[in-house]
């Protein structure tokens, strides 16, 4: 079991409110991703749940039990740190065994559990090495191994992939998702990378300035962003946001249209523009267009498309996919 509930949680650092007031329910077995720009309070929120920071107000409960004042160790959670935080003086075996040793398990059980975990994570051959002798990806797996042997109520991940190179990041992303499928344990995952959020999460919590902007499944956030912030944050390339006269025509202060929802035509359309740069990725082409009276727009076309710098082009937004926002930035 591992449901987590935050009520009226506040956090201040020397008078400055990092998290003014926050409520959140996380269901058992859910994979929840906290995403937001740096400084939005997502890591602080995770550390509050872990117990590494004390809340300034409100309550945190796990499985209905209030753990607000409990020490981190008593909360039954595991954490994977951005730096991996492996114990440099212990072997891989020692690292993975450490939480079990702390829990006072007998040697036989520890040995069996460590070896099981190593098996799952492909670390069997490295058990007697020191962390410094391992590659980044292997260290990451040791950190995960150390987290899973405890069989925690929930896993907490603090930007665990940000120190890995791009290719390895994709691999580890898949491995963590697979782990979640196998274990079905609650996972809370902090990242600033919205691609990670979109690909891994059951539910995404978008944070900004210590407040929750929106909570929902990746597709909900993609289809119905609650406000301008979420609209601009989720999706890659970013949603085009247009204000002024063209927005007025659609009865909104700002309209947003994702690059993939713009139809391009060489002879007619709602907006007229000039092709700047076209990025050919093979499967897709991203086209950066200077639109008259609007500014810079990004459009996405399937496959290879024969556009080049300086071509005139007409753009038409897909009417059903147009997002309209009020003066205050809320979705209409």
């Amino acid at each position: 079991m591992g449901s987590i509930s935050l009520k009226n949680v506040k956090k201040e650092f020397s008078g400055h409110a990092v998290i003014p007031n926050l409520d959140l329910e996380i269901g058992d077995g859910e994979f929840v991703v906290f995403v937001g720009p740096s400084g939005c309070g997502k890591s602080t929120l995770l550390r509050l749940i872990a117990g590494l920071e004390d809340v300034s107000g409100g309550t945190i409960s796990i499985d209905g039990v209030d753990v607000t004042g409990e020490a981190p160790a008593k909360r039954g959670l595991s954490m994977v740190f951005q730096s991996y935080a492996l114990y440099p003086h212990m072997s891989v075996r020692g690292n993975i065994a450490f939480p079990l040793k702390m829990a006072g398990m007998d040697k036989e059980t520890i040995k069996r559990k460590v070896e099981d975990a190593a098996q799952v994570l492909n670390l069997t051959d490295y058990l007697d090495r020191k962390p410094r002798q391992l590659s980044g990806g292997q260290r990451q797996r040791v950190a995960i191994g150390r987290a899973i042997v405890r069989e925690p109520k929930a896993f907490l991940f603090d930007e665990p992939l940000s120190n890995l190179d791009a290719a390895l990041r994709v691999n580890m992303r898949l491995e963590i998702s697979e782990l979640h499928q196998q274990l079905r344990t609650t996972m809370i995952y902090v990242t600033h990378d919205q691609v990670e959020a979109m690909t891994m999460a059951d539910r995404i919590v978008v944070l900004n300035g210590g407040r929750i902007e929106q909570v929902g499944s990746p597709l909900e956030l993609y289809r119905n962003p609650a406000n301008l912030f979420v609209a601009g944050f989720i999706g890659s390339p970013r949603m085009n946001l247009i204000d002024g006269a063209p927005a007025k025509e659609h009865g909104a202060a700002t309209v947003g249209i994702r690059p993939e929802h713009i139809n391009l035509s060489p002879d007619s359309g709602e907006w007229k523009g000039t092709v700047g740069i076209a990025e050919h990725l093979g499967s897709d082409t991203f086209i950066y267009i200077r639109a008259e009276g609007i500014g810079q727009l990004t459009a996405r076309a399937n496959g290879e498309i024969g556009l080049k710098h300086g071509d005139t082009i007409y753009l038409t937004p897909d009417a059903g996919k147009l997002h309209r926002f009020s003066e205050e930035g809320a979705a209409l």
């Binding site: 954490m79 951005q82 935080a85 492996l86 702390m102």
Partner: peptide
């Protein structure tokens, strides 16, 4: 690194341990 001390705390180590 304070991360490592925090990791130990998360792993259930008492202050003494």
């Amino acid at each position: 690194p304070s991360d490592i001390l925090e990791a130990a705390r998360m792993d259930g180590a008492s202050l003494r341990k």
